[in-house]
Every structure is written in structure tokens, then in C-alpha cells.
């Protein structure tokens, strides 16, 4: 299997005056294409920090991250943005839709950023696949939480990413709605053949993945297959 993400000896230290706070240390793992991985751990264990580093949203203190063949530490902010646009999709706990754009426009953004034309068809078909065919012209404020997260799913898959990062994708939703979103996430992932990395402390959700990486105190304490 081909590696899509390789994390090598990663650490992140925050400095506050003379004090140092180590959030992550000696993180080492790699993820193959098409794998579904859950990163789990209690609050403050460094899950979200790890996700930010893997997706090139933040800079590590030491170590390297190789994402879709590019070593992120060698890249400028704009080059990292280009890697994200081409190969990465995101789903956030608080949806992070752009409030001034309609559902359809939100889904179109990653494709438009790639400079592609005739994108409306793909965007609207994705929205239909998440069951929002009739809500395309609605603004985020006119949608419920579950609906917003479904738009977010459609957006995450719109640029056909190689890898998808999901940060507590159901954390802000009730069980029912969360369940539906989970189902959609795995379905779309299956159909598109995307690598999926989910940060969560929802055991049930983690159980649905191929592999679970457990963090505690900024270190990997367990990395086991779930198949």
C-alpha cells in the first residue's frame, strides 16, 4: 500500500514566557491510502494539535510531516495551502461554513480555488447525495446543525481529496443527527476512495474505523488495527 501521510518524530512545544509546554512529543506513524484512522484520547491529549500539524495548518517544533508526497516543513504557507486545496478535505466540529455564501457556493469553493469551471454540476450532485438538493440556495444560518454538517461533508468531498481530516465531526450534533452524518461520511468515503482521519473521543465512531491511534499526554500510547 502507498503511504499518504507520514509523521516522523513530531513534537510541538508552546512557549509562554520562560515556561515551555510540550503538547506533543515523539509522534511517529504513517497512514496508507484508503485507510480509515481514528485518533482518540482524553481532552488535552494533543489530538487537535496533531490534526492541525498533519494538515499543515500549524508548524511543528521538531520532526516532519509528509502529506501526499510533500514534506510540509519545507513549504511556505501558500505552498501548503496549495497542497490542501489539491489533496485535503476538512470537516470541523463547528462546521465552519462561510456564513455569507449559500450552501451551493460553500461546496463550490474548493473547486473554484483550483480554477476549475463547470463545477456547479459536481457541487449540486454532492449536495443531492447528502440529501440537500432542495436547500442549495440557503445560507448557513437558514440550516440546522445537521444540515450544516452535511453541507460541510459535501464541501469536504468536492475537490475529490486524497485524504480527509475530520475533527469531532459529530461533536456538535445530537445522537440521531450525528448518526446520520457518520453514515454519510463513511458512505461518501467508500464511494470516493478517500483516506479518512477522524479525531474523536466518541468510542462508537472510532470503532467504525480500520485503525485507532490513542494519545495521552502528547504521546502515542497505543496504535492498533481495528479490522
Amino acid at each position: 500500500m502507498q503511504e499518504i501521510l507520514k509523521v516522523n518524530n513530531l513534537s510541538k512545544v508552546y512557549k509562554s514566557g520562560s515556561k515551555e509546554l510540550t503538547v506533543l512529543s515523539e509522534i511517529l506513524f504513517s497512514i496508507d491510502k484508503g485507510e480509515k484512522v481514528a485518533i482518540v484520547g482524553p481532552s488535552g491529549s494533543g489530538k487537535t494539535t496533531l490534526l492541525g500539524l498533519c494538515a499543515g495548518l500549524d508548524k511543528s517544533t521538531t520532526g516532519t510531516v509528509t502529506l501526499a508526497g510533500s514534506e510540509l516543513s519545507n513549504l511556505s504557507e501558500d505552498e501548503k495551502a496549495a497542497v490542501r486545496n489539491k489533496s485535503v478535505g476538512f470537516i470541523f466540529q463547528n462546521f465552519q461554513l462561510i456564513p455569507t455564501l449559500t450552501a451551493l457556493e460553500n461546496v463550490m469553493i474548493p473547486l473554484e480555488l483550483q480554477g476549475k469551471s463547470d463545477i456547479e454540476e459536481r457541487a449540486s450532485s454532492l449536495l443531492e447525495r447528502v440529501g440537500l438538493g432542495g436547500r442549495m440556495d440557503h445560507y448557513p444560518s437558514q440550516l440546522s446543525g445537521g444540515e450544516q454538517q452535511r453541507v460541510s461533508l459535501a464541501r469536504a468531498f468536492s475537490n475529490a481529496p486524497q485524504i480527509l481530516f475530520a475533527d469531532e465531526p459529530t461533536g456538535n450534533l445530537d445522537d440521531d443527527t450525528g448518526g446520520k452524518v457518520e453514515q454519510l461520511l463513511f458512505e461518501l468515503n467508500e464511494q470516493e476512495g478517500t483516506t479518512l482521519i477522524i479525531v474523536t473521543h466518541d468510542g462508537e465512531l472510532a470503532a467504525k474505523t480500520d485503525r485507532i491511534i490513542k494519545l495521552r499526554g502528547g504521546k502515542i500510547i497505543e496504535d492498533k488495527s481495528n479490522k
Binding site: 494538515a55 495548518l57 504557507e77 501558500d78 495551502a81 496549495a82 497542497v83 490542501r84 486545496n85 489539491k86 485535503v88 476538512f90 465552519q96 461554513l97 462561510i98 456564513p99 455569507t100 469553493i109 474548493p110 480555488l113 483550483q114 464541501r155
Partner: peptide, 15 residues
């Protein structure tokens, strides 16, 4: 700010 951060996250250049 949050919209801009999303744009950046989705791959938009700062400029």
C-alpha cells in the same frame, strides 16, 4: 477572521 481562516484552510493563498 473565521471565514478567512476557512478559505485558507481550503487552500486559498493569503494574498
Amino acid at each position: 477572521m473565521s471565514s478567512i481562516a476557512v478559505f485558507r484552510c481550503l487552500g486559498m493563498k493569503g494574498n
